[in-house]
Amino acid sequence: MDATWVVLLALVLGISLGAGFAVFVFAAARRGEQVQQVITPSVPDGVDQILGVLESIGIVLDASDNVLKASQGAFALGIVRSERIAVREVQQIADEVRRSGEAQTRTVRLESARSGDAARVLAVRAAPLGTRYVVVLANDLTESIRLDEVSRDFIANISHELKTPIGAISVLTEAIESSVDNPERVRRFAEKMTAEADRLAALTADIINLSKLQADQALHMPELVSIDAVIDHAVRDNAVVADARQVTIARGKPTGLTVYGEESLLAMALQNLVSNAVQYSPDGSRVGVGTRLVDDTVEIQVTDQGVGIPKEDHDRVFERFYRVDGARSRNTGGTGLGLAIVKHTAQNHGGEVSVWSQPGNGSTFTLRLPVATGDEGISAPTSAERPERTQI
């Protein structure tokens, strides 16, 4: 009997110890899962998909400010590095959200790590995501701010440029009224009024053309365009002014090259380049227009023997209303928009324009455009047919 009680007691004790050990193991496992969740928390459902389609910058932070998820833009701008926010101002916004429990919105200026690059301006908004996370969203305002500044400058420049011919016409009108008894003076004032009216018309036309070029991201009526025809048009339009100043416009031999685009736009662009070359060339000098094929690019070069352009002005000459010599440009009837029109025409055709110049050695403007290939319905010249560099 005593032996039976001993066996039963041992059995109960074994069951109790086994159950207690099992409870201990289960509790330890649960604790380990909780610790693992703290160490490697998961992102709430749907956040991955949202960050994947965001065009703006998106970041999700855990309770320890580790970056759980971030959009590509956050890495590209250097906001996130090594799973942490690398921009102090952005981290401060997230910290404020944790302290207040409310969404925060601020503007952050992000300086570029590379010298010469413009700083970026971000609109940053951070808010709680559940009880443990913080989500940070940012929109890049840099381009919209730049466009606003350009628009303001454009309006200011237009107002300034229009004042001159309008003011001159007003003064000349009064002068004619006071000179009705002097036919010679009336004739002279009328000629000046006509010149100012022509200048006002040219400025208005350039403003309209430039506005269209900047507004349109694609060509409306693309077609195969003969470069020879475009050059003929530009030379012909500037012949009268060139002859009056005894400036010779020399052009290279026809090449038969074609590009894909709108002939009227390309003719306007090249006409502006040739016109500038004639205007800034001394009397009795020479302007050259040459064409060559470099790989898959048509290069049209316009060279003058003028005073040249300082190196610091090479990029700025393509800005609207920028003039290296403002007084001379006005005297020659320039609007200050010609090279801006050339730049935007080139960009709309998938090309570019550049300038080489040295003070005292003249200038060479090069318009580069993609050559038309078989995809546009015409074969590019073979190596044997490709023109050599034209001497101008």
Rank of each mutant, 00 (worst) to 15 (best):
D295V: 13
E196T: 09
S285T: 00
S16G: 14
L8C: 14
D295R: 15
A327Y: 08
R30K: 07
V12Y: 13
F26Q: 13
A63M: 13
P381T: 05
D148T: 14
R99M: 06
L162F: 08
W356A: 15
L339Q: 03
L265H: 08
A239T: 09
D295H: 13
L9V: 11
R98A: 14
T291C: 14
P183Q: 05
L162Y: 09
E111S: 02
D117Q: 04
R31D: 13
N348P: 04
R320C: 03
I309N: 01
G101Y: 02
Q36T: 09
A123M: 08
E96Y: 00
E299G: 09
S357C: 10
G338K: 01
I169E: 02
R99Y: 02
R125M: 12
G362C: 01
H344M: 06
A86Y: 00
A175L: 14
I39E: 05
V6Q: 12
G261T: 04
F21P: 08
V355D: 05
G338W: 01
P387K: 11
L129C: 07
T107L: 10
S42C: 10
A242R: 00
L9R: 13
R109K: 12
I176H: 05
V235M: 06
Q301N: 08
Q279N: 11
S275D: 06
D181L: 09
L367I: 06
V278W: 00
I378Q: 02
R31Q: 08
Y280M: 12
R185C: 01
I249M: 02
A277K: 01
V53Y: 13
E385P: 12
S71Y: 02
M1T: 05
S100E: 10
A244V: 00
Q301T: 13
D65G: 05
I79R: 02
